[in-house]
Simulated scan of single mutants.
Amino acid sequence: MTIEQIIILLLIGYIIFTIDTKQENFPVPTILVIIGICLVFVPFFDSIQITENIIYHIFLPALLFVSAYQFPIKDLKKNAGLILTLATIGIIITVFLLGTLTWLIAPIGFASALVVAAILTPTDPISVVSIIKKATGNDQIADTVEGESMLNDGTSIVLFTTLFSVANQEKSFSLISFLGEFLLVSLGGVVVGLVCGYLVSKIVHYSHHRQYQIMLSIILAYGSFLIAEAFHVSGVLATVASGMMISFEYGRAIKEEHFRESLDGFWKIVEISLLAILFLVIGIEITEYIAINFWLYALVIFIFMIIVRMFIVFVITKVVHQLPWQHQFLISWAGLKGSMSVFLILTLYAKNASGIDSEWMVAVSFTVVLLSLTVQSLSMAPISRKLLK
Rank of each mutant, 00 (worst) to 15 (best):
A106H: 04
Y222I: 04
S127R: 08
T123C: 02
F225T: 09
S224D: 05
L183G: 14
I108M: 12
S156A: 15
R210D: 12
G180P: 00
A135L: 05
S234L: 05
I126T: 14
S201W: 01
K133Q: 11
V145E: 12
N152D: 12
I214C: 02
V192R: 03
H205T: 07
T155W: 03
V129F: 04
T136I: 06
V195H: 07
D124G: 07
A111T: 14
H208W: 05
V200C: 12
Q211G: 15
A117P: 12
V192Y: 07
A111K: 14
A230Y: 08
S174V: 05
S149P: 02
T136L: 05
S186Q: 00
T136M: 03
P125V: 03
I157R: 12
I218M: 07
L159R: 10
T123L: 07
I157L: 15
G147H: 08
P125Q: 03
L120R: 06
S156T: 13
T121R: 00
S149Q: 00
L114V: 04
N138S: 06
V200I: 15
S207E: 08
N152R: 06
L159V: 11
T121V: 13
F173N: 03
F160S: 05
G109V: 10
K134S: 13
S177I: 00
L114Q: 07
E146I: 09
V204L: 03
S174W: 11
D124K: 09
M215T: 02
T144F: 04
K134D: 03
V191T: 13
Y206V: 12
Q213T: 09
